[in-house]
């Protein structure tokens, strides 16, 4: 079949280096992946086309790229699944990392973040002579996270990283979960404390992008949510995000629906000098809401049948 790859190229050594698009049209077998096609272009049409790849079997993590605007592992992406009606596929380097040349990016920001979560096991107490005992379920559960091949697809498409480079991001946080969730690790409390700080678990907006683009089913966002639960249980409930979550639960548990007017001060604390600027910062939002008649009612009434909601909350809490 015929396919046209539109590749975003960049030659850093060209005079006035600017990214540009180049099209390659070629005939390939129907089972070809995007990577097979890029390699064919590189070997038969244009040897200057530059990309990283090695295993061709979605395990080395080298070949994350944006295909039609979304991060994908190109060795795992069949052409037929991404071609448009004209047989065209757009390929560009991953996002949120500086481009070095063509489809190659500088992964330093990615690895700096991974390094930032102290990514090694920290057992406590004397080392046993033989192996640590651990339930197989715990190991199988962690295998889901260990599947991460550090490809950077999630980091590429993370909506928070796009605006705040301080965020640890999905891959590093999933890696952190791999230790917090490991029964052999003795440093969970310290880890959770650090992760609750600025740039950590509470900065994710739960946009779900990382879960969608991850080629290995690691589901980073779900790991981040699990870390949040563990952080609150471990007593790290003072971070704004944690307070927000707790306040949200309290209000809904009480009246059956959200009361934004109480949520804001409960999150920031009425008299907390640290968060006073945050609290004051919400006033213009309130005023705008008032002008547009979007302000929630001052008197917050419970919904009919609120007893049922309360019963559900009681059950869930008892279940924990």
């Amino acid at each position: 079949m015929q396919v046209t790859l539109q590749v975003r190229r960049f030659n850093p050594e060209a005079p006035r280096a600017q990214p540009y698009e180049q099209e390659f049209t070629l005939d390939v077998p129907g089972y070809f992946t995007v990577l097979d096609t890029l390699i064919k272009v590189r070997e038969e049409m244009d040897p200057t086309l530059t990309l990283r790849c090695s295993c061709r079997a979605s395990i080395c993590g080298s070949c994350a790229m944006r295909v039609n605007g979304h991060a994908k592992l190109v060795c795992k992406t069949k052409l037929t699944s991404v071609m448009d009606a004209q047989g065209k596929v757009r390929v560009a380097p991953v996002g949120n990392m500086p481009v070095v040349k063509d489809l190659v990016v500088d992964m330093k920001p990615f690895w700096d973040k991974v390094r930032g979560v102290d990514p090694w096991l920290q057992p406590q107490g004397p080392e046993p002579k033989d192996e640590y005992l651990a339930p197989n379920e715990a190991m199988v559960h962690l295998t889901g996270v260990m599947m991460c091949i550090m490809c950077g697809a999630c980091v590429s498409d993370c909506t928070v990283l796009e605006v705040d480079s301080n965020f640890l991001g999905p891959a590093a946080l999933a890696k952190a979960y791999r230790f917090v969730g490991d029964p052999r690790d003795g440093a969970a409390k310290g880890r959770l404390g650090k992760l609750s700080e600025y740039g950590g678990i509470w900065d994710c907006t739960r946009c779900y992008e990382c879960v969608q683009v991850c080629p290995k089913g690691v589901a980073p966002m779900e790991r981040i949510m699990a870390l949040r639960d563990k952080a609150i249980v471990a007593g790290f409930d003072k971070a704004i995000g944690a307070r927000h979550t707790i306040a949200f639960g309290e209000i809904v548990g009480h009246s059956g629906r959200l009361d934004e007017l109480r949520l804001v001060p409960k999150t920031f604390g009425m008299f907390n000098p640290l968060h006073l600027p945050n609290l004051l910062g919400m006033i213009p939002v309130g005023l705008r809401a008032l002008r547009r008649r979007k302000l929630p009612p001052i008197r917050h009434k419970s919904i009919p049948g609120v007893e049922n909601v309360r019963r559900i909350f009681k059950k869930v809490e008892a279940g924990q």
Binding site: W120, E131, P135
Partner: peptide, 20 residues
């Protein structure tokens, strides 16, 4: 193998929690 396990490799276990 034991050294790898101590470093953190998440080897599969048997029902007793030992390496499978």
């Amino acid at each position: 193998i034991i050294e790898l396990e101590h470093m953190g490799v998440i080897f599969n276990r048997d029902e007793t929690g030992h390496l499978g």
